[in-house]
């Protein structure tokens, strides 16, 4: 079965690694994959995304609007920005902590994410909110948000692989000293 997955957030949140792990899990299962992600200047604090497509008869790495089976959003406003890509009945997983851009600080804007979350709740049927900050604190590191988000996505049952697959893939993609922490984060709600 084909799956269109969209990861989004802000440069520096670890989206690229999450996308890589998702891809290698699917690879392991012998599935065909294509993906595309933001590379370059925008990575410096800009909006970043990663499109992933798993399955047969896929021609290009990026899909069009209303085609994502799942959006994994690391930041509420980025979730809203990418919402047009969600297909009807698709699922959105969103981290609740907003990241304020420098421009907002300059203008002393009041952006705090609640408005975004309200919007998402109002216009989507399947929304899973994640207090990534809280889980990070429990695990004792701010650097595992990406594992937490992946974990939630697997728990939703939409990704075509298990948490064990993800742990296995993670072991091949992160430095030795971070494996234990990442494994804990991946398994935190299993």
């Amino acid at each position: 079965m084909n799956k269109n997955i969209l990861l989004c957030g802000v440069g520096g949140q670890g989206i690229v690694l999450t996308s890589k792990l998702t891809a290698s899990c699917a690879m392991k299962k012998g599935m065909q994959i294509m993906s595309a992600e933001t590379i370059g200047m925008a990575q410096k604090g800009g909006s970043v995304f990663s499109f992933l497509r798993i399955g047969k008869n896929i021609y290009c790495p990026m899909f069009g609007k209303k085609q994502a089976d799942i959006i994994i959003a690391f930041e509420p406003a980025e979730a809203v920005r990418m919402l047009p890509y969600l297909r009807e009945g698709g699922t959105i997983i969103v981290n609740t902590r907003p990241i304020m851009p420098v421009t907002a600080a300059l203008k002393a804007s009041s952006y705090n994410g609640t408005e975004m979350l309200d919007y998402l709740k109002k216009y989507t049927d399947n929304i899973i909110t994640v207090d990534g900050d809280k889980v990070c604190r429990e695990l004792g590191s701010p650097k595992v948000l990406n594992m937490i988000m992946l974990s939630e996505a697997i728990k939703s049952g939409i990704l075509p692989f298990t948490i064990d697959d993800a742990v296995e893939a993670m072991k091949h993609n992160v430095k030795q000293q971070f494996i234990e922490l990442n494994e804990k984060a991946l398994r935190h709600n299993f």
Binding site: V10, G11, P101, Y111
Partner: peptide, 8 residues
Amino acid sequence: PELPVRPP
């Protein structure tokens, strides 16, 4: 709602 702009 008005989305924050995030220039690099």
